[in-house]
């Protein structure tokens, strides 16, 4: 028996919108502490890791660990039928080949349930150890989205360089080049507007902008984004979901030939 009631149902809608274009199918792993998902994109260049902890749900019941394979496009279609203010409940029974999404309007005058077929997904689960990163940049998520969008109009790749001076995003294309430098800025009215750079060692890495732009679909989930880089590891782009968990995107770098 599985039953999860999320009062802020829009959160689940936003989570799906942030990952559905990167990953087609994924196993949702439910346990008593919450649910998680890990999946690579079809090209094995990027990886999504999602965690939503049970504490964030008004009601959370998971009698035993279970994994449900879902097509994220189909799940997104169903969740789009929920209103932004709706309460969303996910229900499943042991051994069933379906999952039910129930949508309740805040005034309880409309209740809908959508039953979705599950699928068998044979996916590889990677072990991602905790790592010490050379540099961690925390910045407003909207600013990061703007930079990725702007640079993608000039080039295909972005070089992200972190030095004592700040973080530089650079690209190069047929029409020219672009460099955007952000300096650490903690003297802001709101903490979420700050750019905070923790640097142990300078680092400079190149990434495909197409993937970075896909990650920024998670911008509605969080006012801030954290970018963690080390030369020998994929970059981690993390959007924290307040008091519930996170969506993390891991992206393998472009290597110099």
């Amino acid at each position: 028996m599985l039953e999860l009631r999320l009062v802020q149902g829009s959160l689940l809608k936003k989570v799906l919108e942030s990952i559905k274009d990167l990953v087609n199918d994924a196993n949702f792993d439910f346990s008593s502490s919450g649910f998680s998902l890990q999946s690579m994109d079809s090209s094995h260049v990027a990886l999504v890791a999602l965690l939503l902890k049970s504490e964030g749900f008004e009601h959370y019941r998971c009698d035993r660990n279970t994994s449900m394979g879902m097509n994220l496009g189909n799940m997104s279609k169903m969740l789009k039928c929920a209103g932004n203010d709706d309460i969303i409940t996910i229900k499943g029974d042991d051994g069933s080949d379906t999952v039910t999404f129930m949508f309740e309007s805040p005034t309880q005058d409309k209740i809908a349930d959508f039953e979705m077929k599950l699928m068998d997904i044979d996916s590889e689960h990677l072990g991602i150890p905790e790592a010490e990163y050379h540099a961690i940049v925390k910045m407003p998520s909207a600013e990061f989205a703007r930079i990725c969008k702007d640079l993608a109009s000039i080039g295909d790749t972005v070089v992200i360089s972190v030095t004592k001076e700040g973080v530089k995003f650079s690209t190069r294309g047929d029409i020219g080049t672009a460099n955007i430098v952000l300096r650490q800025n903690t003297t802001v009215d709101k903490p979420e507007d700050a750019t905070v750079i923790e640097m142990n060692e300078p680092v400079s890495m190149t990434f495909a902008l197409r993937y970075m732009n896909s990650f920024t679909k998670a911008t509605p989930l969080s006012n801030t984004v954290t970018i963690s880089m080390s030369p020998d590891l994929p970059v981690v782009v993390e959007y924290k979901i307040a008091e519930m968990g996170y969506v993390r995107f891991y992206l393998a770098p472009k290597m110099e030939e």
């Binding site: 990677l126 891991y250 393998a252």
Partner: peptide
């Protein structure tokens, strides 16, 4: 031109 690395080249399968 840079080569795109694969994500599963960095982490081991569980």
């Amino acid at each position: 031109e840079n080569d795109q690395a694969a994500i599963d080249g960095y982490y081991e399968a569980n």
